[in-house]
C-alpha cells in the first residue's frame, strides 16, 4: 500500500482487531463493503487468542 490518500467508495474502518473487530470486518466484507482493519499490535486476534478453551464446548478458540 503506497503513501498518500486511499480512496475507496463504500469502505469502513474497524479499529481494533480482537474478536469483535474481526467479526465486524468479516460481516462487512460479506455485506459488500471494503474494510480497513486497524490493529495496534502485530497480530490480530486480541485476547481470545490467549484463551485455552471456551465454555461450553471447551474447544480450541483458534
Amino acid at each position: 500500500m503506497g503513501k498518500g490518500m486511499e480512496h475507496r467508495a463504500g469502505s469502513v474502518m474497524v479499529v481494533g482487531g480482537g474478536i469483535a473487530g474481526v467479526q465486524a470486518a468479516l460481516d462487512l466484507t460479506e455485506l459488500g463493503y471494503y474494510v480497513y482493519l486497524v490493529e495496534k499490535a502485530a497480530v490480530v486476534g486480541g485476547v481470545m487468542a490467549q484463551l485455552d478453551k471456551t465454555f461450553p464446548t471447551n474447544d480450541c478458540s483458534l
Binding site: 463504500g10 474478536i19 470486518a25 455485506l31 463493503y33
Partner: peptide
C-alpha cells in the same frame, strides 16, 4: 463475554452497512 461481543460486532457491521447502503459493493474487489 465473547458471544455478546460477536453479536455486537455483527450488529455494528449492520449499522455501518445501513449507513453506506448506496455505496455497497463499489469498493470490493
Amino acid at each position: 463475554d465473547i458471544p455478546e461481543s460477536v453479536t455486537q460486532a455483527s450488529a455494528a457491521a449492520g449499522l455501518a452497512a445501513g449507513l453506506l447502503k448506496k455505496q455497497r459493493g463499489q469498493g470490493i474487489v
